[in-house]
Amino acid sequence: MVKVGIPRSLLYYQYYPMWRKFFEELGAETVVSPVTNEAILLSGSSRTASETCLPVKIFVGHVLYLANKCDFMFIPAVRSIGGKIYNCSKFLGLPDITRAVVPESPVILDPEIDLSRGQGNFLKTIYALGNHFTPDRKRIKAALEEARKANLVYRERMVSLKLTAVEVIGEESRNGNVEAEAPLSSCLTIAVLGHPYVLHDDHLNHRLLSRLRTMGVEILTAEMVEQEKLDAAMARLVGKAHWTFESDIIGMGGYCLERGVDGIISASVFGCGPDSMMVSVIRHRARELDVPFLSLSLDEHASEVGIVTRLEAFLDMIGRRKRICV
């Protein structure tokens, strides 16, 4: 069976169930790299320019891990998933960066996903992609439909069960239902803002989410909220979106500030261009509404202890505030 390598990084967290379904329907097998570890990070950052942001370095590490374990490497260049709203440069350059820094990689499948140019263009891209596996256009189209359905189910489960992306993907692979890890005593609700590839990569963020849960916090991430609500909140706060995944940060931040949470933690990566602007908008709004806001900036030098200390201090502060307020 043909093997398609999918790095467990960046868009994996948003689209893996969809991609897997698509390739399975076409008779290919997907190979996913393991959870990020230090070796993957180091191998990735040894290949890339030092300025590159951490998620891209990790991505390259995952590609290196998969390089000799598959026949194709699937790295889509996602330009736009609707409207005239475009993605960050690095997502667009991702296949080309990978080709440049990992010359030993197998053939890279790099469809350019640009929904702003219409459905016809998108179908053409998908046919070209599917052509690597089967010349049968009908079968490709059917696979696309199945993949779409898989994606809807995936989204729906995250929203209805308040599960994170990793939990839903894990649940599918174990073929059983898992409940969200029950917090010890959920007296605080904290919104965690960040891109899925930051929040769900435990090596990158030093187990931020599970750490918060063991501290007795109920967490809320963007994938647990319906997309429409995020988009509406974003429109109220800044108007039209500028980047593809803007609703993860601005929409989620705006939604939580309207809905009311005990605090907001933003986890962003050092040097992230879009985040540097978006977080500043949310911080500003949070200050106006007097909602506690903690901004964590992560890079390969971030120390675990530093993060824990800041989290504890933040939660203590909120706890004390709440006692005084109530």
Binding site: C53, S89, G93, V101, P103, G273
Partner: peptide, 16 residues
């Protein structure tokens, strides 16, 4: 400029 997104892509590709 430091952290410029498009130029980081260029910087990664240029040496190859």
């Amino acid at each position: 400029p430091f952290t410029c997104m498009p130029e980081i892509v260029a910087e990664n590709i240029m040496p190859s």
